[in-house]
Design a protein around this nucleic acid. Sequence first.
DNA 1: AATGCGGGGAC
DNA 2: GTCCCAGCATT
Length: 375
Amino acid sequence: MNLPPVVQHESELIQNAKLRSRLRTALVRWFAEHARDLPWRRDPTPYKVWVSEIMCQQTQIANVIPYFERFIKRYPDEASLAASDEDELMRLWEGLGYYRRARSLRTAAQKIVELHDARFPLTYDDVIALPGIGRYTAGAILSISQNQALPILEGNTIRVFSRWIAMQTPVDEKTSQNQLWQFSQSLLPTGKSALACRDRGPAAVNQAAMELGALICTPREPKCLVCPVAKFCDANTMGLQSIIPGKVTKTQYEARNEFAAVVRGPNGRLLVRQIPAGARFAGMWDFPKAGPPEAENAAQFTQWLEHQLGGTIELGAVVQTIKHAVTKYRITLHAHVAAWTRDATDLPDNYQFVTAAQLTKLPMSTTGRKLLDRL
DNA sequence: AATGCGGGGAC
DNA sequence: GTCCCAGCATT
């Protein structure tokens, strides 16, 4: 097979600081004009920027906004977050996904109260030591809130920077990542005046690079014709913007059938349980639910349920079929009504009969909430 | 280096 | 359906 030779392009942007300076000027000028009005940009305190950054991880900005508003209203500062009730916190996070983020946020707030007098720390080493905060998030918080000259690298900037320098190697490789981090650092201004000015310092440069990725330098069909820095972009010059960055390993999706039971108790209460620590959806409340390998079909689910609860289960009609995508899984959830004949008075561990009204205050898995809402 | 973690929006 | 999103922690 004949493949074109891979030629590592030497980007002038990497060599030439003056060129980067001109790019930066055009970039922040564009940002001043086109930045979206996001709630955490109005008063970018370290605390608010922190919360927004955690919420934004692997999540589209538009989905974050209402969550952010509610969160800040309920937990306006580090101390109130540290003292938060876990169920209430998870209820506020419900639907946003990656629930470990919320727990880490709370744990970190408690550390901040203990170690930093309830004020968000302002050095990189202190910040990255907090749970849930890695290199990107630490740099983002301190650059955006404090205008510190710390680099960032995430979904948007990986794409933007790799296009600017026409990176030919796969962006997920270690050497590529190192080069992109280095480029990100080299893009930041070092002059005293810029570091004293949010509008053209690291706060603006980092946010502008991400904003460009979100609004102009998009994954598919980047809007190069209206890009404010197109003339600095090697991929654009070379006509490579549609193939850089190359695609990463593609996801293998897996179809999966799961089963849930709606069991009614006294006064129409519903049988639910809080999922134990360590499992997926830990801490969230849900109807009795199982899938492979415990339950491949309705009969096995019935057996599993009898084993869980004791007594006998009579599985009835399907009340809902819910399609749900979770990471690589494509789940079809078959929700049945079920009659439970108990042989003991005690409910098994974690299980409880609760009213629908109580469930509105408890955190549930998304499928659990959907099922409840349509009962 | 690879994998798990949730969900939703764009196309 | 497929891709991707202001990543991190764990193995």
